[in-house]
Design a protein around this nucleic acid. Structure first.
Lengths: 328, 328
DNA sequence: CTGAAAGCGCTAACAA
DNA sequence: TTGTTAGCGCTTTCAG
């Protein structure tokens, strides 16, 4: 079963390969009827353009990269967020004829550049990620750090989402919310902290921001939470920027015999199965991984295909999923 | 900054492009010195072979697929297992000059075939997966169903692992273990059930196997667990084939006021952050996602590069991580 | 409006 | 041992 080439169609339709190419790609002008006829014979012959040949001729590879930023080798921020992003991005890319190659965090630069990708998506960038140096358009999920020259980004209104969360806690009667945050640098983390500090100022509260040291795991949250909850005047609510950190806080609460939600409320960024599974289930911001990934691919493709120009961005709304951990 | 081509090196080194190609690919015979000199000038000029051109010339794309099998559109079995597999497989592929494209479950056949991949890895196949129909070598993680013509597979000794788990439960004093299994078809599930039934026979126990209906989520496990634990003579230990199912069982135990591990032991296949996070943490089989993925890529590449032949397989040992849920 | 022909950069017969 | 040359299948000027 030999592959049908553009030449075969040209022969079958009695035209030249140029005409076939133009007809199939909507180039040039041509009687609609000719175009239709060529299209038809192409279908009949089961023609599928060779991506390899097209790649060589056009200088594109029809490959997109996706990398998760901001964590050391082998570590990942939030499994379900990552998985949903990858799947959605891949499906969207596939619809448009592109393959999505996942690049593990910490992959060497040479290995990445050899992929000759047409563009890249970096999720939660810190700025150290390699695709920025490759000279291909990069779209980020979460705002890019200044000076990284992204071709676009898709982001949440984390200020609004954070205020929504804090208002939710206040409405439930909690009075001293604190933040447990992962390292600064990622825009959603910084936005959360900033919005929290503003909110505190407006409510005449002294902000309490604790940072995770080291890798973002549930264990890393344990000492941080311990210190926080053993203060003379401990917070009565904790909002974390990572689902796994919330679980760490929860275990410390248990250890200190604090009842959640009675003595302590808990909320987290990035809803996940983990947060649904623990007891009590944790109130979380649903960050809409799928729409974000879809938007990121679309932004990236338009940056690749229209060479036009300036960065474009999309904002996706986050929603609050209230659960037992904040229902006093 | 124009790209350096093989021709540039040929000119610089005063040889023909064939010689350059041979020198760089270790083909043909040639004075070592010539080879070294060509290599050196290539390095000096910063030469990097164009993957596109090579792809067209060789008919290979240097692209591998990875698909997770056995679940409906949008559903995934075990997040952390998946993430670790993807990252490790991608890193391994990258080292060998291949890109790993992730194909979401349920992607349409046309979309997949257009990627023109050289080979595919299917994780936990049921046999419905598309790469089998593409005429490219397929390596599976978990044994392939009969008649799918895989080029190789990497698997656990799930019989041994299951017996190890059951022996662990028996040693802790549990006497009536039951199994909560996901749908049949995936080899690790079938092996688990089979080993369990054998073990029961040897211990003169009547086996109890409950199956999840529908999609494999924690919620699906709830009615199943309820029915199981409300039997006249309920099991005093439950082994599940999915981490999220164990969490569902745990919530039912809570609901029925059964204390874990006192009244009920719980173990699961596929250790994950989820199982570490719940209370009590759940004893689990660590299925070694990373070594499996690495082996799968290596098997696949050897199937692609040596066209030789017969399927080859690798077995990876699983280990039991004992936690609170089975420590009476 | 359509066709001929020159590449894209590399590989692999086949010659020399 | 090394070089010449013909593709791989498509896109894209440039003529006709």
């Amino acid at each position: 079963m030999k592959r049908v080439s553009i030449q075969d169609i040209a022969d079958a339709a009695g035209v030249s390969i140029t005409t076939v190419s133009h007809a199939l790609n909507g180039k040039g002008r041509m009687p609609d009827e000719t175009r239709a006829r060529i299209q038809r014979t192409a279908d009949e012959l089961g023609y599928r353009a060779s991506k390899r040949a097209r790649a060589l001729a056009t200088g594109r590879s029809y490959t997109l990269l996706m990398q998760i930023g901001g964590v050391g080798v082998g570590m990942l921020p939030d499994f379900s967020f990552f998985v949903e992003q990858v799947n959605t991005a891949s499906a969207t890319a596939l619809e448009r004829g592109y393959g999505l190659v996942v690049v593990p965090p910490g992959a060497p630069p040479g290995a990445i550049s050899q992929l000759e990708a047409d563009g890249a998506i970096v999720v939660d960038p810190t700025g150290d990620e390699l695709p920025f140096e490759l000279g291909i358009p990069v779209v980020t999920v979460g705002r890019p750090p200044r000076g990284t020259g992204a071709a676009g980004w898709v982001d949440h209104d984390m200020h609004a989402a954070t205020r929504m969360t804090l208002d939710h806690l206040a409405a439930a009667g909690y009075e001293r919310p604190a933040i447990v945050a992962t390292r600064p640098g990622q825009s959603y983390v910084d936005d959360t902290v900033e919005a929290y500090e503003q909110w505190c100022a407006e409510h005449s509260l002294r902000p309490i921001v604790a940072r995770l040291a080291g890798l973002p795991t549930e264990t890393a949250a344990v000492p941080v939470a311990r210190k926080l909850l053993r203060r003379r005047r401990p917070p009565d609510a904790i909002h974390t920027t990572l689902d796994r950190a919330a679980v760490g806080v929860l275990s410390v609460a248990r250890e200190l015999r604090l009842r959640v939600p009675r003595d302590l409320a808990l909320t987290a960024i990035s809803d996940s199965p983990l947060l649904r599974a623990v007891d009590p289930p944790v109130t979380a911001l649903d960050v809409r991984a799928a729409p974000m990934a879809r938007a990121a691919v679309e932004l990236l493709l338009s940056a690749i295909e229209d060479t036009d120009g300036r960065p474009r961005s999309v904002t996706v709304a986050a929603s609050l999923v209230a659960r037992g951990s904040s229902a006093r």
